[in-house]
């Protein structure tokens, strides 16, 4: 068997036994369901909580189903990304620090396969979680509100999956480059959130940046994004991912000597 297969098997087993492959999707599903449900019960909730004078009626506009899915992405962008980053911050840095990496590094290890096996595992967990979560949100939105067209939904979820790849790649590269899991998480969180803020503040000057993928994903629900901008953004995102994969592999190799002996 090639090293990638051996190492991926190890990652798969590890993610089964530390339950990441179960609880991360479940949490995404939970947040996917919560959004349509809270929106549905919001009027009643306000009614029972609010100390409104008798006879006052709250008139809330019924949200469009597309808006519910957009709000789910809003949740994922905060809590979902934080969970993915925290769950995979130690993938490489943690192995080095605990010393478990030493008995791997002492073999004729392909660091490319080492890095890519971890990247693939985290990507699978992230994408499966997002799809299960969005499908749950889609179903609940359909039951409680109205149906979203299936094709735009697929375009929306598919585009958002590429954003997940960007985030996963950032965490893994940070874990390879940083001396410990905490710093890897800090750098990843800073990159993901800070760059999004920068992009939303001054990003009006450019139309293609990987940070705009979530925005474009949502635009599929209400028509379609500017296709030229869209494809340029995806192209740059893939180049960014590829560059980070090379960087991560290089850092994993360079920092191998910092593993605890």
């Amino acid at each position: 068997m090639n090293q990638f297969g051996i190492l991926f098997h190890k990652e798969w087993r590890e993610n089964l036994r530390n339950y990441k492959i179960f609880w991360i999707p479940i949490v995404f599903i939970l947040f996917g369901i919560l959004e349509p449900v809270t929106n549905y019960f919001l009027p009643q909730l306000l009614d029972s909580l609010g100390n409104l004078p008798d006879g006052a009626v709250i008139e809330l506009p019924v949200p469009k189903p597309e808006e519910i899915l957009q709000a789910v992405i809003g949740q994922y962008q905060l809590i979902g990304m934080a969970i993915l980053i925290l769950a995979y911050m130690g993938t490489i840095a943690g192995e080095r620090r605990s010393g478990t990496a030493t008995l791997l590094y002492v073999r004729p290890l392909s660091f490319r396969d080492y890095f890519l096996s971890k990247w693939l595992m985290a990507s699978i967990t992230g994408i499966v979680s997002v799809w299960l979560g969005l499908l749950a949100a889609y179903y609940y939105t359909f039951l409680l509100f109205n149906q979203v067209e299936i094709i735009p939904f697929l375009q929306f979820a598919g585009t958002y999956s590429i954003w997940i790849l960007v985030v996963v790649t950032i965490v893994l590269a940070a874990s390879a480059a940083m001396p410990n899991a905490g710093l890897a998480a800090a750098v990843s969180l800073a990159l993901v959130f800070f760059m999004q803020i920068v992009d939303s503040l001054v990003g009006a000057y450019w139309t293609f940046s990987p940070m705009k993928i979530p925005v474009y994903a949502v635009q599929w629900l209400n028509g379609e994004p500017d296709l030229s901008d869209y494809w340029w953004t995806l192209g740059i995102a893939f180049a960014f991912i590829l560059a980070l994969l090379f960087f991560g592999t290089g850092m994993a190799k360079k920092k191998a000597s910092t593993a605890k002996v």
Binding site: N18, K20, A87, G90, G94, E95, S98, T100
Partner: peptide
């Protein structure tokens, strides 16, 4: 699960 469990 992410901090308390010591996954590595």
């Amino acid at each position: 699960l992410v901090i308390g469990r010591r996954n590595y």
